[in-house]
């Protein structure tokens, strides 16, 4: 009986949570229409969530590029021409590692930042104060962050792709003694603009998910400092999981079956 009761309670909680999330999404979508309310804040958020996150994105890209070049060289073991290092670095960076690794790093930085900020605003009644001053929290707080995340994640990932490729290139020259021409030959050989397009669209979806989850968790924070801490932790965990789910989603729906 207890197991059935516990299961029922768990299912009910999950269904209610899904309902609340759906309602939140609907309200955010409706608030998107009032452009004048969110546009001024969106530019500020683009700087805070995007430009200020650039260093972490670049740092990840540099080390990923170097490691990929060395990993490729190790895996080929002389059986595959070494210029394929360029191919592997280009494909892996643009299709997978730049979007996913940068996305995961930004899930921590941006997701936690949003959840903690909005959570603090919620528990100190600043969100209520906004409402009493006739501001809609969805258009004033949520939409600018989601728009900024959806636009800025692909930009950061785009720069990370270039930097990662550059780092792999330099590592190939400096550590693998591959010539610049050879690396570029490999990189160009199987290059397709689809690779970049795919990576950037994925990054946009990650930005959308991370900021939306951060806002949702932050605005639902309750009970002071502990509540804010829980909201930030949950935002990071849910964002990271969502990035992996979306990564698989894009691979199955867009990448699968292409040649």
């Amino acid at each position: 009986m207890n197991v059935i009761e516990a299961t029922g309670r768990w299912v009910r909680f999950r269904v209610e949570e899904a309902g609340r999330a759906g309602r939140f999404l609907e309200e955010a979508a409706l608030a998107f229409g009032s452009v004048r309310s969110w546009l001024p804040n969106a530019t500020l958020q683009m700087r805070r969530l995007g430009v200020d996150s650039l260093p972490i994105g670049l740092l990840i890209a540099v080390f990923t590029g170097i490691v990929l070049a060395l990993l490729a060289s190790y895996s080929f073991t002389g059986a595959v021409p070494l210029y394929f290092v360029g191919t592997l670095v280009e494909k892996t960076i643009t299709l997978e590692l730049a979007p996913v690794l940068t996305g995961l790093a930004l899930a921590g930085r941006v997701g936690a930042n949003i959840a903690a900020e909005l959570g603090t605003m919620r528990v100190t009644e600043q969100v209520d104060a906004l409402e009493t001053l006739a501001y809609d929290p969805d258009s004033y707080l949520v939409v600018p962050r989601v728009v900024a995340g959806t636009i800025m994640f692909p930009l950061i990932v785009g720069v990370a792709m270039i930097v990662g490729l550059g780092a792999g290139w330099l590592a190939s020259i400096g550590l693998l003694h591959l010539s610049s021409d050879e690396f570029l030959k490999g990189a160009r050989m199987f290059f397709s603009t689809f690779d970049v397009e795919y990576g950037l669209v994925k990054a946009g979806s990650f930005g959308f998910a991370v900021t939306l989850i951060g806002c949702y968790k932050g605005l639902r924070a309750r009970g002071g400092a502990e509540g804010v801490g829980n909201a930030a932790t949950q935002a990071v965990v849910y964002s990271a999981v969502m990035i992996l789910v979306l990564d698989a989603f894009w691979a199955m729906t867009w990448l699968h079956g292409r040649s």
Partner: peptide, 15 residues
């Protein structure tokens, strides 16, 4: 709401 002022217990100023 534009016609109602609300003074919060802990002021709720935007920090």
């Amino acid at each position: 709401r534009a016609h109602i002022g609300y003074v919060f217990q802990f002021a709720a100023l935007f920090d």
